[in-house]
Write a protein that binds this DNA or RNA. Structure first.
Lengths: 168, 168
DNA sequence: AATCATTTTCAATATTTTTTGAAAATTTTA
DNA sequence: TAAAATTTTCAAAAAATATTGAAAATGATT
């Protein structure tokens, strides 16, 4: 496989993967493109490479910056804005996990807290099953939280790799 | 908050959460409804509770069965089919993780393997950055795999909770 | 085997999400 | 400060996705 071909494939796959994870296909493609670009790109570069409109590039880039996955880069002597993506995949993952936790897990857990205070007779089967589900999610959430923290740290932790293999 | 109100809220939140994770809103709602239902429900029950058509219920139930999250239940004396969802949230999570790994992570890693064999000069910056990205994803994927295995097992493993807290 | 009950399918429709592109806003240059 | 370059916005159009509902298929009962 040639490099140019492989790059196309990479971008397209990363985009498809994005849709499975609740991320806009184009946003994921822009991200992929920037990850494998040795140098920062500007809006026109991205438009040309992905065959999409200026407005589309602009919106998705903004979103990527919002997620902390892409940075604006100033190139001296250049008038246009350039963009580059974090290339260390660990940092990318860490960033995504942090954001999703903040945007999704935290609010969900807050809601579960409220729901666990629901009024009703605990001997009622309806109420019991509902509360059990809520409590289960709460416990799971706390654990998942620890787990994600662990994933983020495990890269740098020599001890952990050993433990992981051991338990597996 | 009253139970009926809380249930509605739960279903709606679980549905919204689903869309963030690449899951059809209705499918997530049906799942939520079944999780908090003390007894199995049939198609008509689900239609009534969620205000959706028969065809829609049918398709989403089938998908949930496909994911291993819902089971058909035979109720003796009843002619209709009934459905129930796994209520242990750990089993639910385990099942989802297993399925997503199989459907998404595994094929992605296979593709990365192919891409790592791309032809081209490794001194070329273009090629180098591309290969570094691919390699990074491969390493991350392997690690994430271990990690998911760990998450799945950690529920039953007394030792792990300690380690988790320790490292945090 | 005919009738009734239930489930499944799928073309048509509705809804949601994404994309476009031109106008407006902003920034830079002269 | 006017003109040129660039970025941003957002209403309208296009595309993708989800939903409906009625007809067909399947299964159960008499």
């Amino acid at each position: 496989m040639k490099v140019s071909e492989a790059k196309q494939q990479f971008i397209s796959t990363w985009g498809a993967m994005g849709t499975h994870w609740g991320i806009n296909r184009t946003m994921a493609q822009v991200h992929a493109l920037l990850m494998i670009s040795p140098d920062p790109l500007n809006q026109d570069d991205i438009m040309a490479q992905l065959n999409i409109s200026r407005g589309n590039v602009n919106m998705n880039i903004r979103e990527l910056i919002d997620w902390g996955l892409v940075d604006r880069v100033i190139i001296s002597g250049e008038r246009k804005e350039y963009f580059s993506a974090e290339k260390d995949i660990w940092k990318v993952a860490t960033q995504i996990i942090k954001e999703r936790k903040k945007r999704e897990l935290d609010p969900m857990m807050k809601l579960m807290d409220q729901m666990s205070k629901v009024e009703g007779d605990r001997n009622d089967k309806e109420v019991k099953v509902f509360l059990d589900t809520v409590t289960g999610i709460q416990k799971f959430g706390a654990h998942a939280d620890d787990m994600l923290g662990l994933l983020v740290k495990s890269d740098e932790n020599w001890f952990l790799s050993t433990v992981l293999k051991l338990i597996k």
